[in-house]
Every structure is written in C-alpha cells, then in structure tokens.
C-alpha cells in the first residue's frame, strides 16, 4: 500500500471517530443539563463553556457570556473553524476519496451519504431545533461506518490502518472528555456542597462515551469518581476504555510490523511499552493527580501517532 494512501486511511479513521465524540458530547451535555440536580449544572453558560473546553478552546474568563446559537454553529456546522463536526466529516470524506480504490464501494457510499447529510443540514434548523436530530444522526451514521469498516473490508493492512486511526482517536477523545468533565466536576463542586467524588458530572461523563449502562451493569452502584475512572481508563472489557483502545492499537500494529521482538525504535515497541504501563495501574493512583495523568497519556498517544507517521506514512 502507498504510504500516502495509508496516511489518508489512518486520518479517515481518526476524523470519523472524532466527529462522533464531539457530536455525542454536545448531545449528552445539552440534554442532561436540562434536568440536572443542581443549578450550575443546569446553567446554559456552564454547558456551553464545557463544550468549548472539549474542542480545545477553553474560556479564560468564565464571566464571558456565550451565545448558544453561535457556539452550536461553530462546533457543529461552521466550516471555517477547524474543530467543527462538519470539518471533521469533510476531512474524513476527502481522505476516503483519495483512497477510494482501496476501500469497499459499500464503505465509500456510506461515507459519502454521511458527508452529504452533514453539508446539506440547514444551519438554522440545527441551531434552533435540530441539535438532537443532527447529533443522533451523526452518532448513528458513524456506527454504520464502523460496521461497514468491519464488515466490508478484508481484514488486512487497509483495515489495520483504519482501526489504528479509530482506536488512537478514541483513546484520545475519551481522555479529553474525562478531562472536560473533570473540569466541570471541579467547578460544580462548590455550588451544592456535594463532594467531587460523587458529582452528577460522572454520570454525564459516562453517557458521553456511551458507557453508562455498561458501567451500571458492572458496578451496580451510582458512579463515583474512582469507579468511573477505573471503568473508562482501566477496564479492558469496556469497549470505550482507554486500555481497550490501546489493546486494539497493539493488535493492529502487529499486522504492519510482524516481527516477534520489535526494534526498540519501532512504533510497535512504543505501543507495547505504553500498554504495559497502563495494564498495571489502579484508579486511586490516577485520582491522586488526574491532571498529570491526563497530560502524560495524551503525550504518549501523540508520540505513538508521530512514530507511526515516520515509520509507515513517510512519502
């Protein structure tokens, strides 16, 4: 496979996954805030600030008044801001276009439909009444795309590279969402006297990554900070957990690098190293310095991506 095309497939996977997480974050935060148990979590400004935090544009000054329509438009459909959903979808499709000869017709048609759905979505409808419809459609269409990726592609290099993109992005987005909700939990703490460890925001966090039901089944208790972090970061059976994503990355890199004992400068070696590090972590350790943990793991994920670019996508 051409190195350039491999790079495009990798990023196609990343953009699809990113669009999904951003869309769900908007949806869950907006709608769960409507009947949140405390005033701050119900506040529109609080929710909009949280959205901006997630897309990497946190506000310096909490007293700035955000306009709901502007924020929704920017994150959803404003093609001139890099973090918008519409831009992620455009990039996903552009990357698919250039690798069109390698992916299945079925997958391409689904990406294409996805793209047309987004670019034809009325901005007015979206900012006034379509938030639910738009974001649910995005998350459902990305689920279809994942199905097409798994079900209509040969599980060879092409598949491995797309899955590497998807899983690296998933780990990254889950960490970013944890970071954003942790930030919200800290802010919400003072307002109703509850401890941060039992904040309402942990439930929202789990819903943002579609893991609330799984979590309830596993722990059979209301989520706390410890159980949530443990579940979303360290539980290998949770398909959205960071460790699960890293395990997937580890599995798929082996398709590209078949050597039994990878060279110490290889991507495969770095991935094994990162994997080993998190396999034996425990949640209390993370909770002690959650900021430090988040920075460290995000950095590891960036390093993996860079190494991969140098080793496989260099053209």
């Amino acid at each position: 496979m051409l190195a350039r095309v491999a790079n495009n497939l990798f990023w196609m996977g990343r953009y699809i996954e990113r669009a999904e997480h951003v869309a769900r974050y908007l949806n869950v935060n907006y709608f769960s805030s409507l009947d949140a148990p405390n005033e701050l979590s119900q506040s529109r400004q609080f929710v909009l600030q949280s959205m901006m935090f997630l897309v990497g544009e946190p506000l310096d000054d909490d007293s700035t008044i955000l306009k709901e329509e502007d924020i929704l438009f920017n994150i959803g459909l404003n093609a001139s801001v890099p973090y918008s959903i519409i831009n992620n979808v455009k990039h996903a499709r552009e990357n698919a276009n250039s690798a069109r000869d390698l992916i299945s017709t079925e997958l391409y048609e689904s990406i294409n439909k996805f793209y047309h759905f987004v670019i034809n979505y009325s901005i007015e409808d979206f900012t006034k009444k379509g938030l639910y419809d738009f974001t649910v459609n995005i998350t459902e269409m990305t689920a279809i795309l994942r199905g097409k990726i798994r079900g209509t592609l040969l599980h060879d290099e092409v598949y491995a590279i797309i899955m590497l993109g998807i899983n690296l992005e998933r780990a990254t987005q889950v960490i970013r969402i944890i970071n954003a909700k942790f930030n919200d939990a800290v802010k919400a703490k003072g307002s109703y006297g509850d401890k941060i460890s039992h904040s309402f925001e942990w439930t929202t966090l789990l819903k943002c990554v579609e893991s609330y039901d799984m979590m309830r089944r596993y722990y059979k208790k209301t989520p706390s900070s410890i159980s949530t972090l443990e579940f979303l970061i360290l539980n290998p059976d949770c398909p959205r957990s960071v460790i699960n994503s890293i395990n997937q990355v580890h599995k798929h890199i082996k398709v590209l690098d078949e050597s039994k004992s990878p060279d110490k400068n290889s991507t495969a070696f770095l991935i094994s190293k990162v994997k080993g590090e998190y396999e034996f972590k425990f949640a209390e350790e993370i909770e002690e310095d959650i900021q430090g943990f988040i920075e460290k793991i995000l950095n590891s994920l960036v390093q993996i991506s860079l190494k991969m670019e140098n080793e496989f996508f260099n053209y």
């Binding site: 496979m1 051409l2 190195a3 350039r4 095309v5 491999a6 069109r100 000869d101 290099e157 590279i161 590209l256 496989f312 996508f313 260099n314 053209y315």
Partner: peptide, 21 residues
C-alpha cells in the same frame, strides 16, 4: 492496481519506484 500520484513515485538509477508502507 495502485492509484498513484506523482509524489508517490520516484526514480533511482533510471528505474521507477513507488513509496509504500
């Protein structure tokens, strides 16, 4: 077969190669 662009190919000793993973 592969669909290439100019930047995917290079020439060395008058032979043509494509850059793959």
């Amino acid at each position: 077969v592969e669909l290439v662009e100019g930047r995917d190919l290079f020439v060395e000793n008058d032979f043509v190669y494509m850059k793959t993973i």
